[in-house]
Structures are given as C-alpha cells and as structure tokens.
Design a binder for these strands. Structure first.
Lengths: 336, 336
DNA sequence: GGCCGGGCTGTAACCGGTTACAGAAACCGG
DNA sequence: CCGGTTTCTGTAACCGGTTACAGCCCGGCC
C-alpha cells in the first residue's frame, strides 16, 4: 500500500539496486537513468523507510536520551546541550522521560534497543544489573549523575556534578562573611544530589568551627512549596538562622516567599543562596545567588562521549566531575 | 556478532517462531519450553531489535516531535505536555530541533520516516508542499502554530494560540486603567506569533480611541537583550510611554533591566506586561503580569490528535485555537 | 577477430524480527 | 481402534531497505 523502493523501481523500469544507488549516490548510474529515477521518486513522494535502512546498515544516526523528566529548567538545559552536540554531528535524539518507577526505565531502555547507536542515561536509581539486563551488549552508554553506583571498570563513561564542592564553596562564603547560624534547606530524601550538597554544607561548617545542628537542616524536597514550608519552620525557631543555603533554586525561591511574608529583608535580615543557577534566579527579587553548574555543557560532553565510544568500541570509559561554582548576586549579602 | 532471536532459538534448541511467541505471549507454548526460552534469553541478555520489529509490525509506538528549538521555557513546556500524553498512551518520543534552515527541517522529517507512527510539527516557515514532499503519504501529522498557512482541507489537524485575542485583552486592561501612551515591544520580524500579538495590540488601541504610533512599536526580537534595548529606546523618547506591553516574557524581563537602570519604578512610573507566562515571570521583581497560554496543554492535545488520527485514518482533521488570558500581577498596576 | 577491461544494471541474499500455514503429537469420545 | 480436535512447534515468506556478485554491452588494443 505505501510506496516502497520496489514501487519506485517498477515505475521507473529499473531494479531496486539502481534506485538505491541513485538515492544514496553509491555506485555508478547512467545520467538519464538517474534523472528518470529521481523524477519517479519525487512524483511518488517516496521517502525511504528509516527502520528498514537502519536494519541493514546497523546505524541509526540517533542517540537515545533517558531522563527522569523532560520538563523543568534543569532537564531542559541537559536536552539543549545534548541536542546542540547531536545536531553538530548529524545525529538525532530519541528522548524519553520516566516517572520514578524502575519498570518505566526498563521499558524505555528496551524500546530504544535497535533504534539508537548509543545512549545517554540519567537514572540515579537504576542499578548496574538492571541496566545491563535490558540493553544489548556493546551498546555505548554514558551515565549522568550516577556517581558512586558505578565505577570505571564497568565500562561506562560517566559525568557528574560536584555537588559537595559547590555547596561547600557557597557555605564557606557565608561563614567568611561572619555568619554563625547557617541553615540548609535539604533536598529530597534519598536523592544523591541532595546528599552531596548536604555533605558539602556540613564540611564547610566544620571547617569554620561551627557545629552542624539538626534544627537548621529542614527538608524542602527540592520543591518551591517545600522551600517555603522549611523556611517558615526556620523562622519559628528561638534563634533563627542569619544565612540560609537552599540545596536548589526552587526551594530558594520558595524561601523568598516565606521571608517576604515575615517582613524580613534579604540579605539584610537573612542571607540566602540556592543551587543550580536556573535562569529564574537572576530575575528573582532580590537576584538570587546560586551555585552555577554548566548543565548544557555536561549534556554536550556526554553526547560526544557516546559518539566517541560508538566510533571506537575499545574506547576507554572516562569519569568526569563537573565543577560547580558560586555566582554571587544580591541575595547572599556577600556579592562584591 | 550481536545476539538475535536466532541465537536464542539455536541456544534453546527451538525455532525462532517459538522464541517470538514466548517473548510476546502470542500463541500457545509448552510450560517447560517457555521457561527454557526465557532462561536462555536472560542469560544471553537478549533484547529484541526495535527497528526490525517495527519493520514487520508497521508500528513503532513512537511519535516524532519537530520543534524549532529544544530549549527555552516555551519549548520545554510543549515537550512536557507532549511527553505526558505520550507516556499515558504508552508511546515514546523522537524529538528533533532545527535551527532555522528549511534544509534542517527536511532532513529531520526524512530521518523520522519509518521510525514514527505520527508527527507533531511546529515549523512556522515550512510550506505545505515542502512538508508533503518529505513525508510518506498517510502519515498522521499535527501542526502547531502554523495558522493561516494551512487549512483544514489539507488534511492536517492544527493547534494555535490566540495571539491576537490575548494581546488585545492585555492592552485593553492598560487602556481601561487610563493609560494613553501604551507601547509594544514587538517580536521577531516575519514571525507569525509576533504579527498576531502586534495586531491584537493595535486593535485594542483603536477600540480605546488611541492612535497606533510607530515610535511606540520598537522591535525586541523576542530576546531579553532586545527587550532591554527597545525599552531604552522608548525611554529616550520625548514623551515615553506609561505602559509597555512586551510581546513575550523574555523581552519584558529585559525591559525591567532598562527600567531599573533608569531608576524608574514598576508599575508606578511605567506599567509592564509580557506574554507567555513563563515560570520566571512569577519570580521577577516586581512579579510580571503576562498572558498565559496553556502550552503544555496544547502539546498534550496535539499528541492525542496524532494518536487519534493514527488509530482512525479517516479521522476528521480539526483546527483548534487555544485561548490566551491575562494573568495579573504587580507589574501592570492593574492587579486586583 | 579475439580478448580484456570498464561502466552500468539486475538478481538475490541478507539484516532481525513476525506470522500464516502446515505438520506432529497427544488426547478425546464413540 | 480410529477420526477429529486441540495443543504445540517448525518452516518459510515477508517487511523495506543495502550490497556482493554476476552479467551484459561496448570500446580499445594487439
């Protein structure tokens, strides 16, 4: 029913091999034969079937991208970086998001098999056996944000953000500015990024001779509302903090709401900083200090790593940690 | 070299048909044969090749999404909506972005052929012949934001935002608040959305008995920097406007920069509103009034329309215009 | 004239699945 | 004990491309 290469061949009075040669410019074809085939192909609106083609060539010119979610500024940035790199290399992207369930990830992985030349996967909760059992052996895979769980010997390249270092650097600045009651709005429980940022926070405190205090470590679940609630809880303490480090920008923006409610000025009464440096941080009131991560860059590097691995199967897997550096704006009171 | 269904069949001592039946649960298979096949498949880490499978079944369980760009809050929202709907229906997404060149779009279209069951396309600059020449006949396609250029008789469903109505509603509010010098920061030249919003702005002015004035219609190119520059130009006029409608939020945020530079207060000295209602609008200083568009919703509806068309080839194409409604916050001075 | 080589084209095998069809085995009632 | 189901399994054709190989035709050269 649909028009295939055989339809074109029949209509043009040639063989399928000739049609294929004309359309791909492979092999010699007589000038008028070529013109004839092209005319027929155009007239019939023939477009080669990608699935069939990649079945024989074993190349799809597509890279799969698996993310926990497709929206939000963070993932949007990842996709941007991956896409830019992919387009530069003439590749397409097959993206998929999954809620939280491992079953979702597994389904997505299996669906990608045979449709992609490689995979960029960000699935913090996926174990190595789960990953391996659902992918054909030999498919290049690069992991994002899955540190600890994998090691280079597994054969996968990986990229991760230096959560600990970034958080530590930011909190150090608070300490250096003379703050002694510094709180953190913790991220989601069990989340690897949240744990790293908390670790960095505590390290900076101890360096400064301050004692971590559980009362100053409320959970904000990485959400704006969670940040508001956690900030309210902090303000209700007998001795509220004078500086607050939110483990992501969404919570920091939520905290701003609580501070405004309470009639407190930022940074005069309470200094505030976030993490991720999403675009909205710059436009907040006051502009939000944050820890900047080159997210798009990470995506781009990950994609190139996949392509390298695809090109040279014996490619050495590499593990890269991307630095996260504080960006100072009005909200932290320590801007230059 | 890679493990295929035949490898599994040989290893398990059965035929490929039996393996296929076991793995898909189609047809009857003896209990111990089934167990044997499953064990072998697991041991060999066999994952069926998606390309091969969709070649025979003619179904890919994938919908292609073609957008001008993959980053930015607007496209991120589209993707979110499309993804949610796709996941709900058990479909995957093959997304692709293109710069501006028609050649890019064409390449992406052709690359998707045979890999998707349908397409959601947002390519304002693509003509109908260009679209048709590069897609197999009969592939369901839904267009986003391509009004005017296509009509229902073409057989494509389409979704568009009511740019004109939304802009008109917002500017009417300015006029109702007593403003008589109302400016617009125009979007990119030749852009369909930009034109619609400009039209709505002028309609509202005329309704209010005001004369459109070219000096009050600087171009901001839909970018933040463009918005800043355009706003500076407006402030340099002999009689600067008292209200400014930016044709998107990025320009409005840029305009805020220029206003802050000039030491002017929003909305006291100059009232301001944007369009799109991106998340950052809420966090701006002051919170930005904007025209809200249910972007994710549009994406979701578009995806469902593709699936409907795929399920019933005789599906009636539908053209839907999504309303855009003002969301009032502090920046426009007309919030309740 | 015979032979060789090069340019062009066609035939058919293959990629890795699905599935129509047929055959074999087991089981049933009469 | 036999014909007819039912249940299971295998063979082979197909999906729509690519490509190795072979064949044809023609011109050039000895």
């Amino acid at each position: 029913m649909s028009v295939t290469i055989r339809t074109v061949a029949r209509e043009a009075g040639v063989s399928v091999a000739t049609v294929s040669r004309v359309l791909n410019g492979s092999g010699p074809v007589g000038a008028e034969t070529r013109a004839q085939v092209q005319a027929v192909a155009r007239a019939l609106r023939y477009v080669p079937n990608g699935a069939a083609r990649s079945l024989t060539t074993a190349r799809t010119h597509t890279i799969g991208v698996l993310l926990p979610d497709l929206h939000g500024e963070f993932f949007s940035e990842v996709i941007r970086g991956v896409d830019a790199a992919a387009r530069g290399a003439g590749y397409h992207l097959l993206v998929s998001g999954f809620h939280d369930s491992v079953a979702d990830v597994v389904a997505a992985l299996r669906a990608m098999s045979g449709r992609v030349d490689g995979l960029v996967v960000m699935a913090p909760d996926l174990s190595r056996p789960q990953l391996e059992a659902n992918l054909p052996a030999g498919l290049p895979v690069v992991l994002l944000n899955a540190p600890g769980r994998f090691d280079p010997a597994d054969g996968y390249s990986a990229f991760a953000v230096d959560n600990e270092g970034g958080a530590c650097a930011m909190v150090r600045l608070f300490a250096a500015a003379g703050h002694t009651r510094i709180a953190i709005l913790r991220g989601a429980d069990g989340n690897h990024d949240a744990a790293g940022r908390l670790r960095g926070y505590r390290i900076a405190l101890i360096e400064a001779g301050l004692d971590p205090d559980p009362a100053l470590e409320p959970a904000g679940h990485f959400t704006e509302d969670g940040g508001t609630a956690a900030m309210r809880a902090l303000l209700a303490l007998d001795a509220p903090p004078t500086a607050v480090f939110a483990a992501n920008d969404a919570m920091a923006l939520g905290a701003l709401v609580a501070l405004r409610e309470a009639g407190l000025r930022v940074p005069d009464h309470v200094a505030l900083a976030g993490f991720d440096d999403v675009p909205a941080a710059r436009h907040a009131n006051p502009p939000l200090s944050s820890v900047h991560v080159a997210i798009a860059d990470m995506g781009g590097q990950a994609l190139r790593a996949v392509l390298d691995a695809a090109a040279a199967p014996s490619h050495q897997p590499s593990h890269t940690v991307l630095t996260a550096t504080p960006v100072l704006r009005a909200s932290c009171g320590c801007a230059p």
